[in-house]
Structure formats: C-alpha cells, structure tokens
Design a protein around this nucleic acid. Sequence first.
DNA 1: TCAAAAGTGTTAAGTTTACACCCATGA
DNA 2: TCATGGGTGTAAACTTAACACTTTTGA
Lengths: 226, 226
Amino acid sequence: MVKYYSAETKLYVSVDCVIFGFHQDALNLLLLQRKMEPARGRWSLMGGFVKANESVDDAAKRVLAELTGLENVYMEQVHTFGAVERDPGERVVSVVYYALIDIDAYDKELVRSHNAHWIKIEEIPPLIFDHEEMVALAREQMKQKAGREPIGFNLLPELFTLTRLQNLYEAIYGEAIDKRNFRKKVAEMDFIEKTDKVDKVSSKRGASLYKFNMEAYNLRKTKFKL
Amino acid sequence: MVKYYSAETKLYVSVDCVIFGFHQDALNLLLLQRKMEPARGRWSLMGGFVKANESVDDAAKRVLAELTGLENVYMEQVHTFGAVERDPGERVVSVVYYALIDIDAYDKELVRSHNAHWIKIEEIPPLIFDHEEMVALAREQMKQKAGREPIGFNLLPELFTLTRLQNLYEAIYGEAIDKRNFRKKVAEMDFIEKTDKVDKVSSKRGASLYKFNMEAYNLRKTKFKL
DNA sequence: TCAAAAGTGTTAAGTTTACACCCATGA
DNA sequence: TCATGGGTGTAAACTTAACACTTTTGA
C-alpha cells in the first residue's frame, strides 16, 4: 500500500461506553473499578482501544460484548473527546458511545470478573479523566432521543406494563408524568401493542402486558413522542 | 513518561469541516478540489490531520483558519467516522465538524489558493470517500440546532433585515415560512434588537436592520424557537 | 404610476396540561 | 375489608397555522 500520510502523527484511539440499564425505577450505569494503570482502583466507564482492523463502531460493540456478553445492543455514538491531556497516561482520543440494555439480560459472571457494578445514575461516584463529562453528554443525548424515537424499549424486557414504561420515562426525564396523559399518548401509538398476558407480580389486580412492535413502527413511519 | 499503552495500535486521526455560508438566499458549502493524493482533482471537504500536541477541537479550528483566515468561528462537532476502509489511502479516523461563517468575511485569496469554492447546497457534486454522508449529517444536526438555539446569526453579518433572517431560516429548513408568524416570533425575542439603521439596498422603501444581542440572550436565558 | 419589498392582526385548529375517582384482587 | 396499584375522560390553556391587504419609494 502506498503511504500517503507518512509525515503525519498517529494517535491512540479508544472507545468508552456509557451503559444504561433500568432497575428499581431508576436509570443505572454499569461502571467499573479499573484494574489497570493509570488510575488503578478508581471508577470509570468501560473502554478499550480501537484496533487496526476494526471500525470504531465495531470496537464499541466489542468492548460492550467483552463486559456484558451481549450482542445486537442498541448503541449510539455520542461525541469524541480529544483534549491533549485528557488521559494523563498518554495521548488518547476517545470516542464515546451509549448503550441501552435490558438489565435482566447480561452475563453476570463476566460483569463480576471485570469488577463492574450497576450504579444508580443519581449516585455515581467521581469518575476518572473526563468520564463524568462523557456521562453527562450521553445522558442528555439519550434523553433527547428517547423523546423522539422509540429507543427506550431497549431498556425493558420484551413484555412490560404501562406503569413500568411510564416509570422508565420518568427516570429518563427526571420528572413525574401524568398517568392519564401518558396512557392517552401510548394508546395512540398502535405499535405499542397490548398482549393478552397479564403481570400479576407488580399488583394484586394484575396489569396488562404490552410489547413494542418494531416492524409496525418502521412500516407506518409513525410519529413518536413521549 | 510511562508508556502504559504501548501494546496498542495508533491510528491517523483527521478532522473534516463542513463549512456553511449563506449566499443568494441559499445555503452554500465551501468545498475544495484536492490537490493531493489520494483522489487528486476530486471534490472534498476541507480536512487535515490532528497533531500530537493539539486537541481535536483545535485541529478543526486550525484547519478552518488555514482555509478561510477566520478565527473565533462557530463550530460544532458532528460525528466521528471510523470505518476501516473509509479512506482508500490508509486507515484514518475522521472527526467531522461544521462551521457557520458570514460569507462576506473570509480571506478570499487564501480560499482561492486552496482551490476552494462556494457551492449551493442543492448543487453539490459527488464528494470523495464518505464526505457526502458527513455533509448530510452535519446539515441535519445544524438544522436541528438552529431551531432551538440562536446559531443562525453566525451566518449573517452583524446587521440584517428580518426578510434576510427569514430567508436564512427558509434555506436551513428547506421550506417556506409564513412572514407574519415569523415576525411575530422574532418580536417576542427581545435579544433580536431593532436598530435605527435602515437597509436601502434590498428595497426601495427600506427595511429596518436588526442585530442579535448575545449578552441579552445569555443573561435572560430566554427561550429560542424559530 | 407602478413594481417591489416592508410591514401589520385575527381566527381556527391542534396540542398540551391539569385534574379525581372507581376497579379488581390478595393478604 | 382494606390497602395497593390499574385503569379511565373532560375542559382550559396554550401553541401553531392559515390567511390579505396597505405602505413606501425609486425607477
């Protein structure tokens, strides 16, 4: 291969993942205590370096899979952090992604072996480097997107009650939502389908279980707004 | 310095700039015909490599200044493109930014010397690599942001008529706007200030010139929506 | 005198918000 | 039987959209 750019500098490129889960009516992040230098023992996002033969997106998927064992997870690129001194070890440019996962479906052994823990988003400890800024940006972007596109369902199991869906959106927005107004909107979105199954765990009376029908959503290019 | 990451691969990191201008009631992009390999002679965005001692943001500012002579330009990071084969020369990860500039205020000699030209956004020729995708993303992001924050003024000179401002937003949205509704909204934003100056160029009758008062906007944290 | 752009209010439609009670069930 | 969460409709406030004519002036 011809080397056109040989006069230029190469840099380390990493990915960092802001991994959202929904647990006990609160958003949680999967954070880990570093087992490597620099900053051993301190809290950080899950990250890793981009390799020569993989795309940046693939690196993010790989890093997420290394931690959770999950594939085909909903991920979005958030922002690239490129300050010279952001990593006190060496110069690293980091591309941040967020991932939305169903908190009941991941490889718990793998997560434990990485020294990772789910932490409520309001109780996040100080993070290394610029990771707090990454979290803040990812959270804001996820919030915006969740209001306009049906990505929140990635945080729920396939079947969910309307109360659970409402609690999810309350956690995302950080504010209470009126129950009747919320259900009115959901009722207008016919790709949020009522099943004939009933959840008897969360209440005595039982609540209908719903599911999100992605095909129906894509087909009719329906409006989404929650 | 301790080399923590020496087992990892380094990559070329570049920045590419989608440079918007507003000319003849249309959005324009500043594009150049490459004078270097690979893809010599074909149209592309202005780009450059990130150096070891500069942040990625600074690289974008430098690259923009190299082409236009302008500093303190409004810029936003858009997205990072990281496919392995995106640049057929060598592996390059590119961070894309957009810039909004007043099309009357730039160094025309510098632009000419780079073989760059303003091209109406509806008449953009085929671009190299993934640059068309970069333009599409930048345009969409700029459009979203322009509706919620007062960034459009960066595309205008300090003084402008309301008709010109409306034409700008029509170009950004790609659709006509009702004149009375538009002026009603503008009138409610007291940080868009009427001056006692009048523009006699665009009409015989003369139109009042307005200016955007950034301090007033920041101070009152006013709502913006156009 | 007329062409060309500036400027100006009102009404209808649609969207968003606020709000309170009955229902079904298991403990 | 009662405590708990499930489920339901309406009216007011606000926002957005549609729409047409008069004014000024230089050519």
